[in-house]
C-alpha cells in the first residue's frame, strides 16, 4: 500500500514538474504579447514574434509583401495560381483555402502563428476551431482607403515591421495630399455613375468605390441611396445624366490585368457599355467619357492609384502633371519588388 502511495506521489510530482516546466518554457519563448484592434473592432492578443503566416486574401498578401515580410508566409489563398506572374515567390506555397473558408487540417499541419483574413469572412467559428492549435486569427480588410493606414500600422506592429509600415503610410499620405492639392481649386463637381461587374449594379454609400469617387472629387449619383451595392434601373441613370461613367471589371472578365498585354478586353467592355439601349442620350456617352478600370486598382491596397486615375479623368486640366501610371509603377517596383506591366485602364492615360 505504501509502495503504491509512493508511486502515486512520485508520478504526481513528476507530472506537476513537467506541466510547470512546459509553462515556463512557453512563457520564455512567448516573449512580448501585444493587444491589437482588428478591422471588426475587436481586441486580439498576439504573442510576438510572429514567425509563420497563413494568408487568405490577396489584399493582405500585397501589404505583407510591401512590409518585406514575404518570407514569413507559409500558406496562401488557393486562387493565387490564377495570378502567378504577380506572385513569383509565393505562387507555389501550400494553398489552404480562400476568403470563404479554409482547410483546417492543412492549417493545423502548417502550424502558423496567425491566419490573416477579412473581417466578415470566413465566419467566426474559425477562431474557435483554430484555438486548440494555438493559431490566432487576425482580421484585416485592406480594401477601404479610410481604414487602410490604420490596418497597415496594425500589421506592421504584429510583424515587427513598423518602419516599413510607416514607409507605405507615408507614401499613401503623400499621394493623397497630392490629389487633395489638385482638387483645391475646382468648382463644378462632375456627376459620376459607377458600375461594378454586374450590369446596372452601382456602388452606393458604404462601398469602397463610393469612397474613392468622393476622394477623387466626384459626385457619385448614387450617394443618397441606402445600400452599398444596389441594382438600379437604367432609367434612373438616364435621368441623372452623369458626366462620367466608371465601369470596373474583375480579373475573371479579362484575365488578370497584370498578365494582360493589350487593352482590347477593356475596350470591348467599354464599347458594350456605350452601346446600351438609350444610353446615347447620356452626357458621358455623348462626350466619350466612359472609363474602364481593372479591379486591381479599384478598392484594395492599390485604391489610391485608382483614385488617382479617377481624379485625372474628372479634372483633366487640374491633373495634367499628375501621372497615376507612374504612381503604380513606383508602387510595384518599390513596395512589391516586381516590375510594372499589364493594362489597368481604358482609354489609356496618354
Amino acid at each position: 500500500m505504501k509502495k503504491y502511495f509512493t508511486i502515486i506521489c512520485i508520478t504526481t510530482l513528476l507530472f506537476c514538474l513537467l506541466v510547470s516546466g512546459e509553462t515556463v518554457t512557453r512563457e520564455a519563448m512567448a516573449g512580448e504579447s501585444i493587444s491589437i484592434k482588428d478591422a471588426a473592432g475587436r481586441s486580439v492578443e498576439v504573442s510576438l514574434p510572429i514567425k509563420k503566416l497563413v494568408v487568405l486574401t490577396s489584399d493582405a498578401l500585397e501589404i505583407i509583401r510591401a512590409l518585406k515580410a514575404e518570407d514569413l508566409v507559409i500558406g496562401v489563398y488557393s486562387d493565387i495560381s490564377r495570378n502567378s506572374q504577380f506572385w513569383p515567390k509565393l505562387k507555389d506555397k501550400p494553398k489552404v483555402g480562400n476568403w470563404k473558408g479554409l482547410n483546417y487540417e492543412l492549417v493545423a499541419e502548417l502550424n502558423p502563428d496567425i491566419v490573416l483574413c477579412y473581417s466578415q469572412r470566413p465566419g467566426r467559428d474559425m477562431e474557435r476551431k483554430l484555438e486548440p492549435f494555438g493559431v490566432k486569427v487576425i482580421r484585416l480588410d485592406f480594401f477601404r482607403l479610410g481604414t487602410l493606414e490604420k490596418e497597415v500600422a496594425v500589421l506592421g506592429r504584429i510583424l515587427k515591421k513598423e518602419k516599413e509600415a510607416m514607409d507605405i503610410i507615408a507614401w499613401y499620405r503623400k499621394n493623397l495630399e497630392l490629389i487633395q492639392k489638385g482638387l483645391k481649386n475646382i468648382s463644378d463637381q462632375p456627376d459620376v455613375y459607377i458600375e461594378g461587374d454586374s450590369k446596372y449594379h452601382t456602388a452606393g454609400p458604404g462601398s469602397g468605390g463610393h469612397e474613392m469617387c468622393v476622394l477623387a472629387g466626384g459626385h457619385n449619383i448614387a450617394s443618397n441611396l441606402s445600400i452599398p451595392y444596389p441594382e438600379i434601373t437604367p432609367e434612373w441613370i438616364l435621368m441623372n445624366n452623369p458626366n462620367l461613367i466608371v465601369k470596373t471589371t474583375t480579373k475573371s472578365t479579362c484575365g488578370t490585368s497584370y498578365s494582360m498585354t493589350d487593352a482590347i478586353p477593356l475596350k470591348r467592355i467599354r464599347d458594350r457599355v456605350m452601346a446600351r439601349p438609350a444610353w446615347e442620350n447620356i452626357r458621358a456617352v455623348k462626350e466619350n467619357k466612359v472609363f474602364v478600370m481593372a479591379n486591381e486598382i479599384w478598392t484594395g491596397p492599390r485604391a489610391i492609384i485608382g483614385t488617382g486615375y479617377m481624379a485625372k479623368w474628372f479634372y483633366p486640366d487640374a491633373f495634367k502633371e499628375f501621372d497615376p501610371k507612374k504612381l503604380h509603377k513606383e508602387y510595384l517596383e518599390k513596395f512589391q519588388s516586381i516590375k510594372y506591366q499589364g493594362v489597368y485602364v481604358y482609354p489609356n492615360e496618354n
Binding site: D79, D197, H201, T250, S252, N295
Partner: peptide
C-alpha cells in the same frame, strides 16, 4: 471557389 466579385455576380 469563386472570388468575391464572382460570387456577387452569381447571387445577382
Amino acid at each position: 471557389m469563386g472570388t468575391v466579385e464572382e460570387v456577387h455576380e452569381i447571387v445577382f
